[in-house]
């Protein structure tokens, strides 16, 4: 996978929000790469900037209050941030689609399911679609997401559907256009465990079958463990660690990743850890140096002043923490 050209490359992305009484310096140089056909996870506590990253990547960041202060987002080598609205709409909705946490918010309550599909499919096919073709494609899309009786379902309104069905419809819509990249922002968070499990399994199978790349954003580590190939851990607007999923779970290096993994209650028992003390910093005055230093139990002098660079500890396993810097490496392990 590594030798292929990346599909999406987020480079040193910095995004601020200008709000009443200050500037929230949220994203502080995010780097994230997705290769064709790859499943990538992005985890971190609520408020660490996951949705902001995704919205910026899709060029749907609300401006104002949002401001992209720096960085680039390369989709197949072309910078999305520099594209004209027309070029952008050729990419977004056709090659790149999204699923949101709250399926109800993504569906328009006054249209039935077929009417929801119409603009999506039309946009993807540059309007060259007859109503019949739309209908046929919508039926196919609903079959993809294992919904029974698609004909009847197409006439239903969002409120007539259960939460799980709505999310399936959203997945169906997002994949109906056969995009190359799907960004799913907390797709199961609003659902019950049994339904979340079904939705994730379905999403996973479908993405595999269609060979779509996916960025799965979530605050729940369990959700990504069984799904993604590579995992990014985000803290306060920085990627603090990235590694192949199993490796990250078996050997988390960044103190934040370790804290997160430790905090998840295990089905095998063993008690509940204290978690990570403190909370996400106030983005109007983020801590200098490593943004995690205020909560870190291994904090060193340098952490307070200088932002740690990414250290590649192993092939594909990078961590932004001085514990793994050249000087510290032997001492820390």
């Amino acid at each position: 996978m590594v030798n292929k050209a990346p599909l999406l490359e987020i480079k040193n992305l910095r995004v601020h929000y200008k709000v009443y009484g200050g500037v929230l310096k949220v994203l502080d140089g995010v780097n994230l790469t997705v290769y064709p056909g790859e499943k990538v996870g992005l985890v971190g506590e609520t408020g660490c900037g996951k949705t902001t990253t995704m919205k910026t990547a899709l060029a749907i960041l609300p401006v104002p209050p949002g401001v992209v202060v720096g960085g680039e987002i390369l989709y197949k080598g072309r910078n999305l941030l520099a594209m004209s609205p027309r070029q952008l709409s050729n990419v977004r909705g056709r090659e790149m689609t999204m699923i949101f946490q709250d399926p109800m918010a993504a569906l328009n309550p006054v249209f039935n399911v077929e009417q929801q599909f119409t603009p999506v499919l039309k946009h993807a096919a540059k309007n060259h679609l007859s109503n019949k073709e739309i209908h046929a494609q919508a039926v196919l899309a609903l079959q993809d997401v294992a919904l029974a009786d698609p004909e009847r379902l197409l006439q239903a309104y969002p409120i007539q559907l259960s939460g799980g069905m709505r999310q399936r419809v959203c997945i169906g819509m997002a994949l109906a256009t056969r995009p190359q990249l799907l960004i799913a922002d907390e797709p199961g968070t609003a659902l019950d465990v049994t339904i979340q499990a079904q939705v994730l399994r379905l999403l996973n199978n479908l993405v595999d079958r269609l060979n779509t790349s996916i960025i799965l954003i979530t605050h729940s580590l369990g959700v990504v463990y069984e799904t993604v190939d590579r995992l990014y851990v985000m803290y306060a607007g920085n990627i603090v660690e990235v590694a192949p999923t199993r490796k990250l779970f078996s050997n988390p290096l960044h103190p934040y990743s370790q804290g997160l993994m430790d905090a998840v209650p295990k089905l095998s028992g063993g008690g509940i850890s204290q978690g990570i003390s403190g909370r996400i910093p106030d983005y109007s005055h983020p801590p200098a140096g490593c943004r995690f230093h205020t909560r870190c139990s291994h904090v060193m002098e340098i952490c307070r002043h200088q932002k740690p660079p990414e250290f590649e500890v192993e092939e594909g396993h990078k961590v932004a923490c001085y514990l793994y810097g050249p000087k510290n490496q032997e001492a820390a392990v």
Partner: peptide
């Protein structure tokens, strides 16, 4: 079914999940 739906984070936990029970349907 509930147990097999739980998202887990380690191999030890995977063993505890009843593998044959695939969650279906909604309440």
């Amino acid at each position: 079914m509930l147990l097999s739906s739980i998202p887990v984070v380690s191999k030890d936990e995977e063993k505890l999940k009843p593998a044959k029970m695939i969650p279906t349907g909604e309440i």
